[in-house]
Design a protein around this nucleic acid. Structure first.
Lengths: 184, 184, 184, 184
DNA sequence: TATGAATGAGCTTTCATTCAT
DNA sequence: TATGAATGAAAGCTCATTCAT
C-alpha cells in the first residue's frame, strides 16, 4: 500500500471519528505512519487532502452503483437493483458514507469540486429520466426526483448504521418504499 | 434582545457560513457585539455553545411541527399537513436547517444531547404508529418509517435551498411522493 | 467576622494551597462568600491584597515572639524561650508559616514592604546584640547572626510540617542545636 | 548550545526575576530566541518546564556537593568542607539558589518530583549518619539533622545574596556555627 | 521522495478589574 | 458598602506548514 493511500485511509478514519477541525495533520501522519512533511508531498495542504478524499469517495460510490444488474427488461426491478446497490455500498463502507454525508454540504469542500463530482449521478439521472419519459415514474423535474430518491437511500443507510438491524426483507421493504414513492 | 440570544444568533450565522473550526470565538463575539469573555459567562466553552445551539434549534423544529393542522378526520390530509409544516420550517429557516443537517451526525454533539433531543419526534412517531395500526401505512418498524419520512422532508428542503424554485404545486407533489412512499 | 478578615483568611487558605497565580480573585470571592467587587472595596488590587496578608502575617509572628518569657536572669534560658516561642507559632500556624516562607523571597512583595516588616525582628536583634556584647554569643555581625538563628527555627518548622513528629524532647534538642550554634 | 538548554536558561533567569506567573511563555521564547512552539517540543507545558528546571537544578546542586574534599581523616574538616562546597555553589549560582528556595516548597512542583530529587541528599545523609554513629555528632534523627544543617547553608547563602559581603573569615565563622550546632 | 524539528500566527480561554445597580 | 455581569487584554497552547537534511 503506497503512502498516498495510507494517508487517505488514515484521514478517513480520523476525520469521521473526530471531525475535520479536531484532526491535526500530526495525528494523520502518526496514524498513517509517515512523517508530517510526507503528507505535503502528496497533498498541497489540508483542504486539498480533504477534497481528494471527497473525490475518491464519490468515485467509489459511482463505481458501486454501476455494479447493479440493469438489464432493461423490467424497469421496477432495475430501479430497485440500483437502489439496493447504492444502499449496500453505504452499508458496507460506513466511514465513507459518514464522511460523504458530513462533508457533502460542508463549506470545506469547494463548490466546483462538488459540482464536478455530480457526474457520478449522471447514469442515475439518465435512468430516472428514461423512467419519467416512459411513464413509469412521476413527471417531476428529474434532478429533483434524483435527489429525492437518493435521499431515501441515505435515510436507509443512516438507519442501518444506527444499528437497527435490517434484515433482507426490511431492505426490500425500503426499496419498495422508494419505488412507490417515485412511481407514477 | 439579551446577550445569550445575540450570541446564539451570531453563532448560527457564522457557523453555517464558515463551519465550526473556521469560526473563532472572536468572530462570534464581534458579530454578536459582546466581549469575548461574555460568551463564557453564558456558555462554558465553544463545544457547549454549539450544543446549546443544537438544542435550541431542535426545539424550534419541534414547535414548528406542532403548528400543523391535524384534525383526525382524514389521515392522508393530516400526514401531508405535518410533512408540509416541517418542510416550511426547513425552508423558512435555512440556517437552522443547514446547521441541523451539518451537525446532526457530527462528532461535535455528544450522543446524550442527540438522544435527548429525539423527544421532539415523539408526536410524529405516535402519529405514524397510529397510521400503521389503522392500516393506512406500511407495517414497517415505526422508528424506521419515521426516519424514512423525515428523510423525504430533508431532501425536499435541500432541493429548495439549492434554489431550484419549488412552486406550491411542486411542494404538493413532493408531499404526495412522501405519502405514496409510506402508504400501505 | 468582618468581610476584610474573611477575604484575608480565604486568600491565605487558597494561596498556600494553589499558589498566587493559580488563585483567581473569583475563587477568593467565592471562598470568602463575598462578591468579586467587594474585595476591591477593601484592597486596591490583587497585589495589595497579597501585601496586606504579608503584613498581617508578619505582625502575628512578631506578637508571637513577644509572648516568650524573658526574665533576664539566665541568657541561655531566655534565648531558648524565644526560639521555642517562634517555633510554636510556626508550628501552630502552618498556613501562615508556609505563606511567609513562600512569599518572603518572592518578587510579589515589594522591597519596601519587606523592609518595613523587618521591624518585627528588632527585639530579637536587640536581644542577640546584647548577648554578643555580654560575651554569651559569637561575635558575628548581629544581623547575620539573627538570620542564621532564624534559619534554624524555619528549618525546625519545616521538619515539623513534613509530619516528622517532633516530641517535646526533640524540640528541646533543636533549641539546644540553635543555642550551641550561636553561643560563644 | 541546544534549544532545550537555551530555554531552561532563559526560564531560570526570568522566573527568578519576575516569578512564575509573571513570566509568560512568550517572554521565555523571546529571551531564549526560539519560537513559542519550540518550547512545547521540548516541554509538554509550562508546569513541566518548571519541573525540568527544578530537576536540573537539584542535580547541579548534588554534583557541587560531591566536589568537597572528603578524605575521612578529620571528620570536622570533612564536615566543614562539604558545608562550604554547598555554600559556594549557592553563592556562585545565585539564580539557581533563588529558584530552588522559591520553588522548593511551592505547589508548582509535584510531590513526586520533590521526593525523587531527595536522592541528591543521600551522600550527605550517609555522611551525617556516620558522624552520629561515631559519636562526632548529636544523636538526633539523621534526616532531621540533615535538614537543620542544610538550613544553615541556606541561611548563609541568603545573607550572602543580600549583599552583606562575606569575607573568607566570615564564611569560616558560619561553617563553625554549623559545626558547633551539630557536634555532639 | 521522505523526514521531523522548528516556526509563529492565531486559536480558546482566563481573570483582574470596572461600574451600573 | 455590596453586588456580579460584563469587559477585553493577555495568557497558554495548538497546529498547518516549511525546509535543511
Amino acid at each position: 500500500m503506497n503512502k498516498r493511500e495510507l494517508i487517505l485511509e488514515a484521514t478517513l478514519d480520523l476525520i469521521t471519528e473526530h471531525g475535520f477541525h479536531a484532526t491535526p495533520m500530526s495525528m494523520i501522519s502518526k496514524k498513517a505512519k509517515v512523517a508530517a512533511g510526507t503528507i505535503y508531498h502528496h497533498f498541497e495542504n489540508k483542504e486539498i487532502l480533504l477534497e481528494a478524499l471527497y473525490t475518491e469517495s464519490k468515485g467509489k460510490m459511482g463505481r458501486a452503483m454501476q455494479l447493479a444488474t440493469v438489464n432493461g427488461e423490467n424497469y421496477e426491478a432495475d430501479y430497485k437493483s440500483i437502489w439496493i446497490s447504492l444502499f449496500i455500498f453505504y452499508a458496507d463502507n460506513s466511514k465513507t458514507f459518514q464522511f460523504l454525508e458530513q462533508y457533502a454540504q460542508s463549506p470545506f469542500i469547494r463548490k466546483e469540486t462538488k459540482e464536478e463530482q455530480r457526474k457520478h449521478y449522471q447514469p442515475i439521472i439518465d435512468f430516472l429520466g428514461q423512467g419519467i419519459r416512459k411513464g413509469y415514474l412521476k413527471s417531476i423535474d428529474v434532478e429533483i426526483l434524483t435527489e429525492m430518491v437518493h435521499g431515501t437511500v441515505v435515510s436507509a443507510a443512516k438507519i442501518f448504521h444506527q444499528q437497527k438491524e435490517l434484515s433482507k426483507i426490511a431492505i426490500n421493504e425500503l426499496a419498495q418504499f422508494a419505488w412507490q414513492a417515485a412511481k407514477a
